[in-house]
């Protein structure tokens, strides 16, 4: 199967004050196949979100190539970038800031359809169907985002991402702001929707547990570079790179005895 998304040797610089630059990505390569979920893990500042942003066209690329479905999109701007909207979508971390508070849920979900030229009647039908898919009642369309809980808002954000049937969704820490119980149901929703629609995910997260649940393959990022890539099972259970090992041991398990062991091992690695 050929790759849907291919990122080769990507370099992204952020301009700090004046002329100084900060190299957020130092030549990163990654591929995502159709119907696949690829995880990107790392601590904050590792560049994982920047990679997602570069794919979405929200961060300027200094060098390297991004190819989507065989076409180069590294520097796609304006009309070309808008043309990609039907193929590449996003779900952000913050369920509070990612929905316009002045728009009803119906308007939020219809916006991507309306700008693509869908008629209002047709858009309404699609929106109702989409709400049903993410397990929200149909009368949500007349309500404002502030009337929903964090988990429900994230469902709305997922519905917005999928409403134009994209082939790739960049998920930027989509569950890290949610309660653990809500996290679990949202992750299951991601998996269900992937099976139903065949969409691919580029799934950015700092939590190996989350990544293990939804990702087929995973890349571990550290200081702007990918230090390890492999099948999720292998990377999460038997990591090779010392950084991945530390990352795995840093996340606490919900079991006092095993956590005591894990902590001891982690402390051993730390020194």
């Amino acid at each position: 199967m050929s790759a849907l998304l291919e990122v080769e040797n990507l370099v992204v610089d952020y301009r700090l004050r004046g002329r100084t630059r900060f190299r957020a990505l130092k030549g990163v390569s990654i591929t995502v196949k159709p119907g696949e979920c690829v995880g990107l893990v790392g601590e904050s500042g590792s560049g994982k979100s920047t990679l997602g942003k570069a794919v979405l066209g929200l961060a300027a690329v200094a060098s390297g190539r991004i190819t989507f479905d065989g076409k180069e999109i590294t520097h796609a701007r304006g009309r070309a970038r808008r043309g990609l909207a039907s193929d590449i979508q996003v779900v952000f971390q913050d369920p509070y800031g990612s929905l316009d508070p002045t728009m009803t849920v119906g308007e939020v979900l219809a916006e991507p359809l309306v700008v693509a030229g869908t008629s209002r009647v047709q858009a309404r039908a699609v929106v109702t169907g989409m709400l049903d898919r993410v397990c929200l009642p149909a009368d949500a369309v007349h309500r404002y985002p502030s009337e929903f809980s964090g988990g429900q808002r994230q469902r709305i954000a997922i519905a917005r991402a999928l409403v134009r049937r994209p082939r790739l969704v960049v998920c930027d820490e989509p569950v890290s702001a949610l309660d653990l119980t809500t996290q679990a149901t949202i992750l299951d929703l991601f998996v269900d929707l992937q099976r139903e629609t065949g969409v691919s995910y580029l799934f950015v997260s700092h939590d190996l547990g989350v990544v293990r649940r939804v990702c087929h393959r995973v890349s571990v990022m550290y200081q702007g570079e990918i230090v390890e890539t492999g099948l999720t099972r292998q990377v999460t259970q038997d990591p090779v790179h010392p950084y991945t090992r530390r990352l795995r041991l840093a996340s606490p398990v919900a079991d006092p005895e095993r956590q005591a062991e894990r902590r001891a091992t982690w402390l051993g690695l730390r020194d």
């Binding site: 066209g57 808008r82 043309g83 590449i88 952000f92 800031g97 316009d100 916006e111 954000a157 917005r160």
Partner: peptide, 14 residues
């Protein structure tokens, strides 16, 4: 700087 503006741009809104 709100994420919903980024989301709108990704959704193809001019």
């Amino acid at each position: 700087k709100e994420p919903y503006i980024d989301a709108a741009r990704v959704a193809g809104v001019t």
